[in-house]
Design a protein around this nucleic acid. Structure first.
Lengths: 272, 272
DNA sequence: GCACTAAGTATCATTTATCATACAATAGGA
DNA sequence: TCCTATTGTATGATAAATGATACTTAGTGC
């Protein structure tokens, strides 16, 4: 997806409108406000709005006709994936589809920054840093940067990372994974990430930071994950618990359906 | 965090460098190449590089000294607000801080779009639509759009929405809130939202869509919430459960601390 | 102290983006 | 058929971004 639109304001408008469209905020067939109204709304001139609209048209997201206005002709792709909060994708196996991982980089770096702090290692230590992109049916949806303390990282090879979930590698290496903390946020796609995920620089991404601890409360994995929101989302159900003023939400127990006589799922490891 | 940098090329460089810094590719204390080298590397002039560096400096990610060069001084996140997955803010009461709600709009609109579909109402029905902004200590952090079926909406007044959580109003009106589904994603700030949250159009936002159902499985509230990621985030702990290949994650039971002899928290309603 | 390095400051030319404006063309409805 | 709404086209003015260049200032290390 070439980032053709160089003009800063036009590009900004383009990104906002496109986000509304692909996120489903405005649906197929809906009409956009006319160019003048958009210009007022965004505080730019009509010419600039047109630049943005032309780009959307070029990408077949909208259709424009004189006197008839501008309509959405984009239909959201049916293959939008969802994961529960633990990162387990829904229906992955049952839909007969497969995810693939591409290892973009794999090296050992001097500890520092958020990863080092989270893992509780000093400046002298080394961390294994791996960057991976996961795709479903050839379509990339997540960009993953992991840091693992060197002593653990050396127990597996780069190639393993392309084949197996990191968490599985850790446990296979004898790490007693006990708990994790997660934080979900949002950020913009930087050029490098954008290129890897096939999106435009400046697109919104879901950001997940997960720190995994072992039985001794030592950090064993620092995961920084970025997801395309049009391909991936976190979904979960909650039930109302308690009484009166003490009422609160509780998570719905995870639905782990296994066919009565069927095999259990191949793996409960999460597809980050 | 206002994205001030408008200049396209400078911004591009800025994004690349920032990504390197926050992703841990270059660590705390490390030195960046000098301005001339960066200029060559990125194929732009030194002036443009400076723009990018100035912005990074403004955000306290780097420190620049004559003859000494440019160093990374970024340290992992200072305290942002966090909520668990149910939207309950941590430490809100204990920190002696207060959230305030401003009601931006309140009206009844013809059903249509995602809200209508989620609530299972037809085109002829009316929905109550309310737009609110919640602030902590005067600083806005969330933009909330709620749709509620008319029959329920009429049981309370606009003013109530500025005082009490919507969920509480619903239950006070006799609605038997039973469960909810949530989806977390990311999107870009449109001008209206950006203005209300005090950020720049095109900034990334955390997006939450919650559909609340009553005991009879009817949709009673459709919440579309947008959060500033620099002020708010979703955080949750998980524990590893199960054995061998059947291992998976489970949510950590919510920590509901109540001082031994103290009162329970004022309210367990979520601060969305 | 001296040479060197790298950031700080200044200026002006050039290119690019944006705006304001006007008018043309087309479709749809009254 | 005429009126209106909306996109399509064109153009010149203005503002903003970028670049090229030169020079200054403050640390660094010998």
């Amino acid at each position: 997806m070439a980032d053709r639109l160089q003009e800063a304001k036009a590009r900004q408008v383009y990104l906002v409108l496109r986000d509304r469209i692909v996120s489903g905020a405005v649906q197929f067939g809906a009409r956009l406000p006319n160019e003048n109204d958009l210009a007022v709304e965004h505080g730019v001139s009509r010419v600039t709005i047109r630049r943005a609209l032309l780009e959307l048209q070029r990408e077949h997201l909208i259709e424009r006709r004189r006197s008839a206005g501008t309509r959405i002709i984009y239909r959201p792709s049916p293959s939008r994936m969802t994961a529960d909060f633990s990162g387990v994708l829904a229906n992955i196996a049952s839909m007969g589809r497969s995810t693939k991982v591409k290892l973009l980089s794999f090296d050992y770096v001097q500890a520092g920054g958020a990863a080092a702090e989270a893992l509780g290692v000093g400046d002298q230590d080394l961390l294994q840093r791996a960057v991976r992109v996961r795709s479903l049916d050839g379509v990339p949806f997540s960009y993953l940067v992991t840091h693992v303390p060197e002593r653990i990282g050396i127990t597996y090879k780069a190639k393993d990372l392309a084949d197996r979930p990191l968490l599985e590698l850790l446990e296979r290496s004898g790490v007693k994974v006990e708990r994790a903390t997660q934080r979900i946020s949002a950020c913009l796609a930087a050029p490098e990430v954008a290129a890897a995920l096939g999106i435009t620089t400046g697109s919104p991404l879901i950001e997940l930071v997960r720190i995994v601890y072992d039985r001794d409360n030592r950090g064993v994995e620092y995961l920084h994950a970025l997801y395309r929101p049009d391909r991936y989302g976190f979904e979960f159900d909650m039930v109302r618990a308690g009484h009166a003023t003490k009422r609160s939400w509780a998570t719905s127990p995870p639905v782990r359906k296994v066919k009565p006589n069927g095999k259990p799922r191949p793996s409960a490891y999460s597809f980050t």
